[in-house]
Structure formats: C-alpha cells, structure tokens
Design a protein around this nucleic acid. Structure first.
Length: 787
DNA sequence: GAGTTTGAAACT
DNA sequence: CAGTTTCAAACTC
C-alpha cells in the first residue's frame, strides 16, 4: 500500500523535490522520513489511489494521510515541506489536488500562522498537506504536544514540523481518536466559527481548549484547517451528513469491502463537500484540476442535500479535501486511515457514490456537534441512518461510523485494535437503503409525516423523519433534528427553523447551552447491552433488553408500551432509573433489570477482558433474558454504545417488537436492511465510544458522549431517541469497540471541549451518569486494548 | 389531515 | 429539587 501510495504521491513530491524549496525544507526537517512513514501509514488506506485528496477526504487525521501520499516517497517531512513551499511557489503543479491542498494550506498557514500552530500539531499525519501548507506554522511544538501547542500556539519551525510529523505519526493513534473529537470540534468551530476565515482564530482557540493535549494535535489540525476553511468546515459538516448518507448507501453494499468504502466514501463525500467549499473559497488553489467539478456545484450539492457529488469529482476533490477533511475526520475520525487503506480512493469514492450516488444527500448536519455521533448511534438502530443520512449530521456520523469501521478494519490496526471486527459490521443498509438521498430534494416535498411513514414502512423511511417544530425554532431538544444533531432539511415541516447551516452559530451556541445545562442532553438516552445478542443472531423476539434507559422514563399512562416511553422507543427495558408506573415494558422491567445489571456488570468486566467472551456472554444474556441488562450495563457508555446499539438496532428493532406494536413490525420489515444499517451505526458507535474515552474530555465524555449520540431513530423512525445507546452492543461485535472510541469522541467534544488526553477513561465518564456505564468500560477496554 | 394524548424538555 | 408549563412527538380518529 504504502509504496503505491507513495508512488502516486511522488509526482507532486518529485516536483517539490526539484524545487529549491524542497531541498531547503529537507535540510530544515531532520525527520523527513517520518512523514513518509507517516504518510504511508495513513495512506495505507489511500494506497494506490493517487488522489491525495482521498486521504484528505478522510478527515483531518487522514489529511495527513492524504498529504503523505501526495508527498513523495521521500521523507514526509521533506516532501511536506517541499510541497508546502513548492505549493506556495508552484501552486499550479500537476499534483493538483495535493498541490491545491498544499497551497491552500500554505496560504492559510501564512495568514493563519498563529493558528498554524494548531495545524502543525495535527498536521503531520493526517494533514500532511495541511502541514505542508503551514509549514511555517509548524513549530517545534513537541510533536507530542502538538495538541496543546497547536491550539495555543503555534510553532515556529518548519523543522519542528518534521518532528511534529514524526510525533504525529506516533500520535496517529491518538489522532484517530481525536478525529472523532475533531469532528465534533470542527463542528463546533464551524458552528461557532462560522464561515469566515476570521473565525479561524476563534476556532483555533476553541479547538485548543477542547482539544487539550492528546487530541490537541488532531484538533489543532482541524482547527487550522477549520480556520482556514471554516466554510469548508461547515461544508464538511454538511458533507459529513451527506457522507453519512453515502455511507449508509455503502453499507447497503454490504461486505466488508463495502464497509470500508462506505466509510471511505463517506469521508470522500465529506471531503468533496468540503472541497467544494474550499474550492469556492479557495478556488484559486484548486484550480488545478480537482475541480472537475465546479466549486459551486459542489456547494450546491452539499447544500442541496441532494447533491451527491460525482465520484470522480470527489476523487479529484480529495486533494482539496485535505482541509475539509477535518470535518470528515471528525466524522470518520475513526476511520480515516483505515478507510483509505482499503479501497483505492477512487473505489471508495465510487462505491460510496454509487451506492449513494443516487441518493447522495446532502444533509446538512451540524457538523460540529456531537450530535452526529448520536445520530450515528441512532442510525444503527436503523432509523438513524435512514433518518437523515442525508440531512443531518447523522449522516456524517454514520459515515464516521462506517469510517470508523473501515478504519478499524484497515486502520484498526493502527489503533492496535484489530479492528477487524468492526469491519464485520455490515454497513448498512439503513444508510444504503435508507434514504434516498434525495429525500431532501425530492423528499422535500414529502411531508415529515410521510417520511416517518416511509421510515416506518421501510427502513429507509424511518431514517428520514423530520421535525415539525413550530415554536422551538428547532433549537431545543423537542426538535428531533436538533436533538439528533442534524440540521433541519426540506422534509422538515418546521416553522421559524433556526436549525440550519446558515445559523450554525446559533445552533452551536444553543447546543452548548443545552449541554452546559445538561451534559447528557444529547447523549443517547438508552444504552444497550444486547449487541452481542444481535450479533449472535438472537431472536428478535428476545428483547435486546440489554440496553437501558439512562435517565429512566417517567411514563404513567403508556405503561412503557408505547413510543412515548423512551425506554420502549429505544428498545430497551426499563431500569431502576425509571420512575414509570405500571411498567409493562416488553423489553424488560426495572425489577428484573437491577439483577441483570449486576450480572451484566460482571459480565461486562469479563467481556472487557475477553471480547470473545463478551460476545458469548452477551448472546447468552440475550437468550436468557430478553431484557438482559447485562449487556446493557456494559454498554452504558452512551456514545460508544451507540455504535453497538446501532448494530444491534436492526436486531434491536426486531427485538423490540416482540410485542411492540407497530414499530416493531416496521423494524422487522426493514430489519434485514436495517440490520445492515444498524450494523454500521454500531460500528460507529463503537468507535465513537472508544474515541470518546480516549479523546473526550471528562465532561464531554460523560454527558456528551451520550449526547452525541444522536437520537436514535426509533425503529419506526418516528422519534429517534438518541440512541441511547442501546448500543452497548457491541463490544462483542468484533471490532466494535475499536471503532466506537473514535466516533464517540467526536460528540462529546462539543460540550467538553477540553479533551482529556486519555480518552479511554472517559468512556466511563460519559456514561458515568448511567449505571450502564460499565458497558462502556468493556468497550473501552477493548478499544483501549485495540487502540 | 386534524385533533388528542403523552411525556420529555424547559421553565419557575 | 420539585412543581408547572411548554412543546412536539406519538397516537387516534
């Protein structure tokens, strides 16, 4: 992989090398090799793909990768530097994408030098290009520190850059984790930062805050990019949604390869989107060729929701994406690398495109917010993906999940996890089938209800649900879209809606306020343990019960047998946290739960140690008691769980239904397709979880992560509860944990800006609230182990 | 499609 | 923290 990639990259690099600048840079950077190595690593995913853009596509961390590929074989540092310089000098060079990216980066770097610091930190790896771009920026900041330094400051030396690159490589793992955060952060930035470059600084600050050390690098990277390209970021966010959507499509494809693609594609998609923005803004830079697609077109696509960008375009854009990648990154955070690895970029893009192409949505998700994660989590259930793959952030999240999975698969390795398991998850269908991307477009006409119906009916449909807020302006948790971290789209019948990309700042600020008030506000309400069961193929009849409602419901008249009940909606049994009356939750009742929970905890612990065991245990649990909390307990970590839950969801959906009323039927229908979809989500969730732990600040981790989980759509698609996480699932699922970490982080990030260096611990925190948190640990443990 | 029910979210 | 109000989803007709 690496070699091929390098070869591809070489062209540009060769150029750079030729240039005096290159030589100069080489001299400066002692660590040249690092980049290459780094690049190669990151590139793995990209591999053959020449398109640097692809790498970039994959998210910030990925960015590095992209750059790397571009960069010639030569040491990354050299290349990067050279490129940077060259780019500046040669803006035109053939390596269009790469060059463009670089140029862009350079330009941004120049203007942003201050910010550059952050970039530099992140840079190395993912952003290769970015790094390059910001060569100057790269300070010496210790590579490791990139995170902090980045934010705060910048660095000064290009040489340092090289070092950073190295450090970055070392940090890659962390970065990946961070990616998730980034995504969130980026989102935040986007939201907050708004569009203009001016924001960059602000964003950078935010990032710095959020990121803290470990994540700092990634964040920094993103931030820089963000700064440079806030718009891009926004776009990216949108793209992310679309990506998610795409991912869903991909998932539809199924197979691991597909999975990889999906994620990749998703990333690509984002990148494209981002690129589009960038292009628009930075058209100059990209002129090279990337642009096969006009920036406007891209933007249109992104904004339109529909717009799936042509694969080709995406590919081309990839280079540019580097910057935007960050956005993607957060989404794919998990994956970036892995995804890239798997398929050639083109393939990925294509696959994604194809899968989605038709649909391509464009969701406008709120990028920044952790919501995406939640959304993802939700999607797994089935709805999520469907819901909005197009629109909302969810999509991104989904994408992220996918990405994560893919990463896990390919990159997982990077993480240490063997993330292969993640790969296993089928991408899903939800996404794939799910929504027609076009929902927005064509779908717009469709009333929200219709969408719901669709969701109910089909798998797809569920996902597509939309809000119909009238007084809340879609800025409160009442709004499903807002709660899910997704922007409202055409399908929505809301009035006075402020939950739109145009109002990103408002949305983000509102989110922050809500999260400040209730860190768990956006966290999944329900955590599931049952993933194992799902995976194992438990009977749908058996309730996934493992999942539990974190906060607990307060049902009085519905007997917890209707969607009014969050627990029921989430497909989980009621827990001790519930204050419901006459509880008849088919998924499980409180009383039973308590016992189960304890067991679950024990099991979870065990499972943590041995994932396989977990699976077995989970299965057993599932079999034994539908509700079984054991799993739930484990999953508790919300965000993380999401992934798992998602995975389960499909099953879950089926599971719920045992008695459920309609919803289940719906679920059952789509179950197959959904299942696939769910799978993806699960993956993502898993990733997210893991990521969260690692990267997420304590605050974020706890509440946020959960929050992040976008509301999971109910199987039916009506309300999506935040996935709550039923997800918990996943540990077992093979790689789930690994993946989860990444994805999770992203969400939390929003709230907790600060990032704890060690995210892993966080997972617990995220769920700390809920007893279920144990499950997270399990995941975390796995993740950590993997990581 | 309109109206009612329900329970979470928001507010006090 | 508890009680009340507001809100929009879920549900019914």
């Amino acid at each position: 992989m690496d070699t091929p990639d390098r070869a591809a990259a070489q062209p540009a690099a060769s150029r750079a090398e030729d240039s005096p600048v290159f030589s100069f840079l080489n001299n400066l950077s002692p660590i040249e090799p690092l980049k290459s190595a780094y690049n190669t690593n990151s590139l793995q995913g990209f591999q053959s793909i020449n398109i640097t853009s692809i790498s970039s596509i994959f998210t910030s961390p990925h960015d590095n990768v992209n750059k790397e590929p571009r960069l010639p074989k030569s040491s990354l540092g050299e290349i990067s530097e050279n490129k940077v310089c060259a780019d500046s000098a040669d803006t035109n060079k053939p390596s269009k994408s790469s060059n463009a990216v670089r140029l862009f980066a350079c330009t941004s770097a120049v203007t942003r030098e201050t910010h550059a610091v952050t970039c530099s930190a992140v840079v190395d790896p993912a952003t290769g290009p970015c790094d390059l771009a910001q060569p100057g920026q790269f300070d010496n900041g210790s590579p490791d520190h990139n995170t902090t330094p980045c934010h705060g400051v910048r660095s000064d030396l290009k040489q340092d850059k090289t070092r950073k690159l190295e450090a970055a490589q070392t940090v890659k793992n962390t970065l990946e984790k961070r990616k998730c955060l980034f995504s969130t952060e980026t989102r935040l930035l986007d939201g907050g930062g708004e569009p203009v470059h001016d924001n960059d600084e602000v964003l950078g600050c935010e990032w710095s805050d959020l990121i803290s050390t470990t994540s700092a690098e990634l964040l920094a990277f993103d931030s820089t990019t963000m700064d440079e390209h806030h718009r891009e970021v926004h776009l990216a966010a949108k793209n992310a949604e679309s990506c998610g959507y795409l991912l869903s499509k991909l998932t539809g494809d199924g197979d691991i390869s597909d999975r990889a693609y999906p994620s990749a594609s998703g990333q690509v998609y984002y990148q494209e989107l981002v690129m589009g923005d960038d292009q628009t803004e930075n058209a100059q830079i990209f002129q090279d060729g990337q642009e096969t697609i006009s920036t406007q077109e891209i933007q249109d696509n992104i904004y339109d929701a529909n717009g799936c960008i042509p694969l080709d375009y995406k590919v081309e854009s990839q280079q540019q994406r580097g910057i935007r990648r960050r956005c993607l990154v957060f989404e794919a955070s998990g994956f970036s690398n892995s995804v890239v690895k798997k398929g050639t970029v083109e393939n990925l893009s294509v696959s994604t495109c194809k899968g989605k192409s038709p649909v391509q949505t464009q969701p406008r998700g709120l990028r920044g917010i952790g919501l995406h994660l939640n959304a993802l989590a939700l999607t797994p259930k089935g709805k999520m993906a469907c819901q909005d793959p197009t629109d909302s952030a969810l999509l991104p999240s989904s994408a992220s999940e996918k990405d994560v999975h893919s990463k896990l698969l390919s990159a997982g390795e990077n993480f240490t996890h063997s993330g292969g398991e993640l790969l296993e998850f089928p991408m899903d269908d939800c996404s794939a089938g799910g929504f027609p991307v076009n929902d927005h477009v064509s779908g717009q006409s469709v009333s929200p209800q219709k969408k719901r119906r669709k969701t109910d009916n089909g798998d797809d449909g569920e996902a597509c649900k939309r809000c119909s807020c009238k007084k809340s302006k879609c800025l409160k948790l009442y709004c499903e879209c807002f709660a899910a971290g997704v922007y409202c789209s055409e399908p929505c019948s809301c009035q006075g809606c402020l939950n739109k990309p145009i109002h990103e700042e408002i949305v983000l600020s509102t989110r922050k306020q809500i999260e400040f008030r209730n860190p768990l506000a956006f966290a999944p309400k329900v955590i599931r343990m049952s993933d194992a069961g799902l995976e194992t193929g438990e009977d749908p009849n058996s309730t996934p019960a493992s999942a539990r409602h974190k906060r607990g419901c307060n049902c009085k008249k519905s007997s917890c047998l209707k969607k009014y009940c969050e627990c029921y909606q989430g497909g989980v049994g009621c827990s001790t946290n519930c204050r419901c009356e006459s509880c008849k939750n088919t998924f499980g009742r409180r009383d039973a739960e308590t016992e189960l929970t304890e067991e679950m905890k024990q099991e979870s612990e065990q499972t943590e140690n041995c994932p396989q065991q977990k699976d077995n245990d989970q299965q057993k649990a599932n079999v034994q008691s539908e509700d079984h909390p054991l799993l739930d307990l484990v999953p508790i970590t919300p965000p993380f769980d999401l992934s798992s839950s998602l995975l389960k969801l499909p099953n879950f959906s089926s599971a719920k239904p045992p008695r459920p009323s309609k919803p289940r039927s719906v679920n059952s229908r789509s179950s197959a397709s959904k299942a696939t979809a769910t799978v993806q989500p699960c993956k993502s969730s898993k990733i997210a979880v893991s990521g969260i732990d690692e990267e997420m600040p304590d605050i974020l981790k706890e509440p946020n992560s959960p929050n992040n989980c976008v509301k999971t759509t109910s199987p039916n698609g009506k309300r999506v509860l935040p996935p709550h996480n039923g997800l918990s699932i996943s540990l077992n699922r093979k790689g789930g944990r690994k993946l989860i970490l990444k994805s999770i982080p992203s969400f939390p990030s929003l709230v907790g800006d600060t990032i704890s260096g060690s995210a892993m611990n966080n997972t617990d925190s995220t769920f700390s609230v809920s007893p279920l948190t144990l499950g997270k640990h399990c995941f975390c443990a796995d993740c950590t182990s993997v990581m």
